[in-house]
């Protein structure tokens, strides 16, 4: 298995800790696509952040390609994000001071895996060829999300994590972006874990899992 989530718990600290995940478990094979659904506040994004090593869990274990996340320090977690996992957020989170072309290549360059041909192909497939010298704030929401997807896939990750990637887009743009993402994921052979609250989008992926009461059903 590429990704294994085994009985993971997470609580938000406070005077009385608020449990969010109460023993969530999941497995994902290389090249698989899975949609994780759930109500607002159910802990979908929290689980995604734990898998991305952006946050640490209280108990249980997450393993990515044989690496147990509980054994990693901050530098190790940063290296994992840099080299093996890629993220696509609802808010795009592009770097506003870099051009589209620089944003597209940025993660691959951080990982030390720049494949110019692949990036050029990606740019063409994502329809960003004419926008390469623009800055993110000069693009529409759909265009920005295409840049974010391109940035994530340019480094050929083993695992792509997407958190409501079409949440900020209208229905037409949303469908177009999702089509592209699924095509490119299939082309790279990456596994995809996509968080969404939309049954319509979830239905487009190979597998679906539902998070409720802190557990995956």
């Amino acid at each position: 298995m590429l990704l294994t989530i085994d009985n993971v718990t997470k609580s938000w600290p406070g005077e009385t800790a608020v449990p969010v995940l109460r023993g969530a478990s999941l497995a994902l094979a290389a090249g698989e696509t899975l949609a994780l659904t759930g109500e607002s506040g159910s802990g979908k994004s929290t689980l995604l952040h734990l898998v991305a090593a952006l946050d640490v869990f209280d108990s249980g274990e997450i393993t990515i390609d044989g690496t147990a996340l509980s054994g990693l320090d901050e530098a190790g977690r940063a290296a994992l994000r840099r080299e093996r996992v890629a993220l696509v957020f609802q808010q795009f989170n592009l770097i506003p001071t870099l051009t589209v072309g620089q944003n597209l290549a940025f993660h691959a360059r951080l990982a030390g895996r720049v494949d110019r041909d692949w990036i050029d192909r990606l740019t063409g497939r994502l329809g960003l060829g004419a926008l390469i010298r623009r800055y993110p704030e000069q693009l529409s929401g759909g265009q920005q999300q295409r840049v974010a997807i391109g940035r994530a896939l340019a480094m050929r990750p083993a695992l792509l994590l997407a958190d409501e990637p079409t949440g900020n887009l209208d229905e037409d743009s949303s469908d177009a972006v999702l089509d592209l993402m699924l095509e490119l994921v299939a082309e790279t052979g990456a596994a995809l874990l996509l968080v969404t609250h939309s049954p319509r989008i979830a239905a487009r992926l190979e597998r679906r899992a539902h998070l409720a009461g802190g557990k995956i059903g």
Binding site: E74, A78, L80, L87, I95, F106
Partner: peptide, 14 residues
């Protein structure tokens, strides 16, 4: 918000 994306891409806070 300007630094967080870099952190997410694997640059440590330090």
């Amino acid at each position: 918000p300007q630094l967080a994306p870099l952190w997410a891409l694997g640059i440590t806070r330090r």
